[in-house]
Amino acid sequence: MSFEYIVKIFIDYWPMFLRGAGLTLLIALVGTVIGAVIGLLIGIVRTIPRPESKVKRVVLKIVNVIFSIYIEIFRSTPMIVQAMVIFYGIAMAFQIDMDRIVAAILIVSINTGAYMAEIVRGGIVSVDKGQFEAARAIGMNHWQTMKNVVLPQVIRNILPATGNEFVINIKDTSVLNVISVSELYFVTNSIAGMNFRFFESFFVASVIYFILTFTITRILRYFERKLDGPDNYTMIGSSLQNEKATL
């Protein structure tokens, strides 16, 4: 009976499953965070207003072209192919055997960065133009405007899309088995190879994938609500002390 086998496989191999799931989560989490940082940095640079000096304008133009090439290449090729090209490419170019976990995080990060750059750009464009103007009018430079006014709003706006990237990454790390990273898919494949119970082993894996993504989605929702702040505020002042004003 297959159900008994599912339970048995889980009981027999749970430490392996757990390690695989842990590595999957680690690669996806670190990759998404680094990818988001890459996306934010590219977003900040791409929205720098046209500089007055000609040299700066040319430099900025070149940098932006490089960013565009990066984004287009990584969005237009599958991550499974990127993994092979990057891992074996680095091995060939530098004659090193890269740590597989490091390689995995690197691949997921730059892949996510390409998507996040576009998400961040959308997030910055969606911030009201008046916010930029008010910041400029008060004397802020581009970086101060971004740090204090725009990015906090962008981060709130892109949080759902970033969560989505995280969930996609949890699932897509499975393709990294091609470079033998012992994440959940790779581990499951090994387990199935040992007992020849393919359905049962991968059924356990699918349940673990679901639990991971579902839990993370809930946690992110909670953060979104938290970032929105309370719907009411307290009035300060003698006559109105402790009075609650609501929306």
Binding site: G130, A134, V149, Q153, Y233
Partner: peptide
């Protein structure tokens, strides 16, 4: 930017920073 700090601007659409109280 230094010059702009000497001029206080009030906009038609307020443009308060939405992320700050």
């Amino acid at each position: 930017n230094q010059y702009r700090t000497k001029l206080g601007m009030v906009f038609q659409h307020f443009n308060l920073f939405n992320n700050l109280n």
